[in-house]
């Protein structure tokens, strides 16, 4: 079988997430193959962001297992998961608005560097050296996402499209093997959406696996290798884009095809 040969970078097994009496995720099972773009779609409230929060350790699942590169991560804290190589963006862009564009990306370099509070306070030579390394690495990331010329501007002053791109850049700075992008195209105009989609494809080319939550079906159909559909916390379909487009359950879930699948 072909599937057993391909490495699964992420495995979600029987995950249940309950908030009080509310079931946000119900016995969810799926895998993500290394190096692919997997999209998760579904109507609002389907549990997509909750799933991201579980995977990235914002809160542990009520039941079930999450494995990243065969290691159980469902009980790890968010920063430990980041260290293992999963990064994310947020649906409501969560940039550090008190910092410059460059500094935002430099925070992303946090995991891959070490220098203690005390060593920093005394500004030991190795701290200076590391600081220069972080800076040049952050500049590389800015170049990759195309924001080099805005590096000194306040992150707050960027237009929404650039803020979303910057957030992706910040996630890349953690040197992840898997990035979870939560609606990278929401609120963007056509040009900005295209830029975001192109960036996501280029990230894939670097060998980074992508988990994508997105409402823009054109983007999803265009760039995803595989799509999973959630509805009320349950998986109702999974497959390559063509299969999903023709799946009647999916069309039903979207109220008889309110979305444009073209």
């Amino acid at each position: 079988m072909n599937e057993t040969l391909t490495e699964h970078i992420l495995e979600v097994e029987e995950v249940v997430m309950a908030f009080g009496g509310l079931m946000a995720l119900i016995n969810l099972n799926f895998q993500v193959k290394k190096g692919m773009i997997k999209a998760i779609i579904g109507p609002n409230g389907a549990g997509k962001t909750t799933l991201f929060n579980v995977i990235t350790g914002t809160f542990p699942p009520t039941e079930g297992a999450v494995r990243f590169k065969r290691q159980s991560i469902e009980r790890l804290k968010a920063h430990e998961i980041a260290k293992l190589g999963i990064s994310r963006t947020f649906q409501t862009v969560e940039l550090f608005t008190n910092m410059s564009v460059l500094e935002n990306v430099m925070v992303g370099c946090h995991t891959r560097t070490r220098s203690s509070f005390i060593a920093s306070g005394f500004r030991l030579p190795q701290v200076k050296r590391k600081e220069a390394q972080i800076r040049s690495k952050a500049m590389e990331v800015l170049e990759f996402i195309g924001l080099t010329d805005r590096s000194e501007e306040s992150a707050d002053s960027l237009p929404l499209g650039d803020r979303k791109i910057l957030e992706i850049g910040r996630a890349l700075a953690t040197e992840p093997e898997l990035v979870c992008l939560d609606e990278p195209a929401a609120g963007l105009n056509e040009t900005e959406t295209q830029a975001a989609a192109d960036l996501i494809k280029r990230i894939k080319e670097k060998g980074i696996t992508i988990l994508l939550v997105e409402h823009d079906m054109k983007v999803v159909m265009d760039i995803s290798d595989e799509i999973m559909v959630l509805n009320y916390g349950e998986k109702i379909a999974e497959g390559i884009p063509e299969e999903i487009q023709n799946n009647h359950k999916v069309i039903e879930a979207y109220l008889g095809g309110e979305e444009d699948y073209a």
């Binding site: 350790g57 969560e94 550090f96 946090h110 600081e131 910040r170 700075a173």
Partner: peptide
């Protein structure tokens, strides 16, 4: 000492926490 901390990785982490704990921890900040 404090100024040095502020201009370092630790200082950035502290300022990041101020704005968003969720985003900070997603960046690996404990």
């Amino acid at each position: 000492f404090t100024i040095n901390v502020i201009q370092s990785r630790s200082g950035r982490a502290l300022r990041a926490i101020h704005i968003s704990e969720a985003a900070s921890s997603a960046m690996g900040v404990n």
